[in-house]
Amino acid sequence: LEAKFDDSTIFKKIIDSFKDSVTQINFVCSESGIEAQAIDDSRVLLVTVSIPPSCFESYRCDRPTTIGVYLASLAKLLKSANTNSSLTLYVADKPDELLLLFEEPKNQKSMEYKLKLVDITADMLEVDSDMKSDVTVEMSSVEFTKTVRDLTQLSDSFTVSVTKDGIVFSVQGDTAQGKVLLQPREDLADESNNLSISMSKTIDLSFASKYLLDIIKAASISNKIFLKFSDDTPALFEFKMEKGGGVGFYLAPKYDD
């Protein structure tokens, strides 16, 4: 594998977006790009990552390779990332380490790190990325982040309901309750403020607040978030990158007994 990001912070943002949700991950590299999925220790949150060749300045993968890494270690190396440097990932044919080369031609500087790869035994799950959903919402990730931060303070359970009138996020704590209603809008001056809802039926689902606090760490990937809800599947919270691919979080709901 030889894959070069023209801006090293792209990879840093991707890794930082889920490094607190899961401890380790297998990156599966093929000529169609880098794909990964990992489940958190409590098996409630599934992270999926897709970095297609379009995200790279140059991308080459001669034979399919799996790269297992501890995310805490990789995140430490990526602290060196900045917008002036490129980052090339190298993995040899017989992979036992990942080489990261940061280059800042303007500053005549380069940095090289090596990360030991780890054997991770993890089942790949059959996840249909085009899964049908009853409700799809596209909204500002900044707005979503603020709403999650405000409401999750009040309760460890977070409810989302969507009707024709809009999307309602609500919490019911022991001493306080809160509710945020967001209605569809079109902001011609700033398209990232738009909120759109498409739905075939209403939904009303509850999730554990702590996972939503993990998910919003990915908001730096995109100023938009796509939400997909159905009665009978985990919710999908998806951040898509400008150049294709992105990071998705499938979150299993809580059900009333």
């Binding site: 409630v44 089942d123 799950l125 359970s157 499938y250 299993a252 809580k254 059900y255």
Partner: peptide
């Protein structure tokens, strides 16, 4: 009372 579902309840292993 509510119970937390698991990802494995919904997705099967490839």
């Amino acid at each position: 009372k509510s119970s937390q579902r698991s990802i494995g309840d919904f997705f099967s292993v490839k």
